[in-house]
């Protein structure tokens, strides 16, 4: 019982916050479900993504590449590259959460943007664990229920273009990108990456342009490094 030492009022606050984040995040699981079915995945495949991959931006990336006509495996690679930020969260959280063995293996599955955000600023391990697990589990349950609901609704709708679902995917990516655009360097990288990807669209197989855009990040990281070193 790692949370036994926390006062009940504080426990309730952390639990309430976690559930609230879960409800808010679960809501866009509905759009993921609908978008994924519109991209041509079955309801079962859509639900498998939410259960097994369980990191929203990566899931949207996989179905986005498939929707654009790309090979599923290049969608998977894009998803994994986007998932690399979860490793960064883990590096920041490992000491604070202090999980070991099977608990660490289980906790890793719910290591996502939201669970990290709700735990990273807690002063003690007990509070961080409670915030992390409550948020992670609430998001997991609601995200998966919402995915199923969205996938079923998407199947019932018919041609996704009639409802503008193809436009919803671009909007979803922009919404995920938006909070990162406050930084000037991020803005430059975003514009360059978009330009490189569009430039490659007529020249390469679908899915390749997005992966190539990761090269922009790599180059920018290396080059700006040299500049600061000089």
């Amino acid at each position: 019982m790692p949370h036994a030492s926390l006062p009940p009022a504080q426990r309730r606050t952390i639990l309430g916050e976690g559930v609230a984040v879960g409800v808010a995040t679960g809501a866009y699981g509905i759009s993921f479900g609908a978008v994924s079915v519109a991209a041509g995945l079955s309801v079962l495949q859509t639900c498998a993504l939410s259960l097994l991959v369980f990191t929203g931006a990566s899931q949207f990336a996989l179905v986005g590449v498939v929707a654009a006509g790309g090979a599923p495996i290049s969608g998977a690679l894009t998803a994994i590259l986007l998932g690399s930020r979860n490793a960064l969260y883990g590096l920041r959280m490992a000491h604070l959460l202090d999980f070991h063995g099977w608990r660490r293996a289980a906790a890793a599955h719910v290591l996502i943007d939201e669970s990290t955000a709700m735990a990273v600023n807690r002063p003690t391990t007990a509070e961080a664990r409670l915030g992390f697990l409550t948020t992670g589990i609430a998001v997991f349950v609601l995200w998966n229920l919402a995915t199923l609901a969205g996938a079923l609704a998407g199947t019932a709708l018919g041609d996704p273009r009639t409802y503008g679902l193809d436009a919803a995917v671009g909007a979803a990516f922009l919404a995920l990108l938006w909070p990162r655009l406050a930084d000037r360097r991020h803005q430059v990288v975003a514009v360059l990456a978009a330009a490189v990807a569009l430039g490659l669209v007529p020249l390469t197989a679908a899915g390749v342009p997005v992966l190539a855009a990761a090269g922009v990040a790599l180059l920018a990281g290396l080059l700006t490094g040299r500049r600061t070193a000089a």
């Binding site: 990108l177 990456a193 978009a194 855009a213 990040a217």
Partner: peptide, 11 residues
């Protein structure tokens, strides 16, 4: 920078 580049390219 990787998430920024990938998300922008996906958009």
């Amino acid at each position: 920078l990787i998430p920024v580049a990938l998300l922008a390219a996906l958009v």
